[in-house]
């Protein structure tokens, strides 16, 4: 209980700073957290994600592995969309059966971690307090 107020304050702080960070600096090498402005107020702490370190560790060289393209609910693994924020395509509350932003993140990260047998799977491993 005692933790809730500080937690909330912390969350607000993180949200604001993340918001500012994403708005002002689009350079990838500064990304350490995933907190797109589209989510608004966050339920959980933003997912920890150090872009460059992650890719180095995961030996990822092709941007398209994550930054896929696609349309009408079909993923296109050949069209790279680097530079386009995820939230441009994946809406927080999408119309119809399109993948929501939250689900897109969860799917993107967890499915890969699960397939590779490496990387975090449980909530709190990414959403670190």
């Amino acid at each position: 209980m005692k933790r809730i107020l500080p937690l909330l304050m912390l969350a607000a702080l993180v949200c604001t700073s993340a918001f500012l960070a994403v708005q002002t600096v689009m350079a990838q090498d500064t990304i350490t957290k995933l907190a797109p402005a589209a989510f608004g107020k966050l339920t959980r702490p933003p997912a920890v994600f150090n872009h460059d370190k992650h890719n180095e560790k995961a030996k990822l060289e092709e941007c398209v592995v994550c930054h896929h393209g696609g349309a009408d609910g079909k993923q296109d693994k050949t069209a790279s969309t680097e530079g386009t924020p995820c939230s441009d395509c994946h809406k927080v509350k999408p119309a119809g059966k399109a993948t929501s932003l939250q689900r897109a993140y969860h799917k993107q990260c967890i499915a890969c971690h699960r397939a590779k047998g490496k990387g975090p799977l449980a909530c709190g491993q990414c959403h670190v307090r």
Binding site: R3, A122, C123, G124, Q125, V128, R129
Partner: peptide
């Protein structure tokens, strides 16, 4: 405890 990430989170969540 897992939600608040008290003690070792990975052990706690399992």
């Amino acid at each position: 405890l897992a939600y608040h990430q008290v003690f070792d989170y990975q052990v706690m969540i399992i």
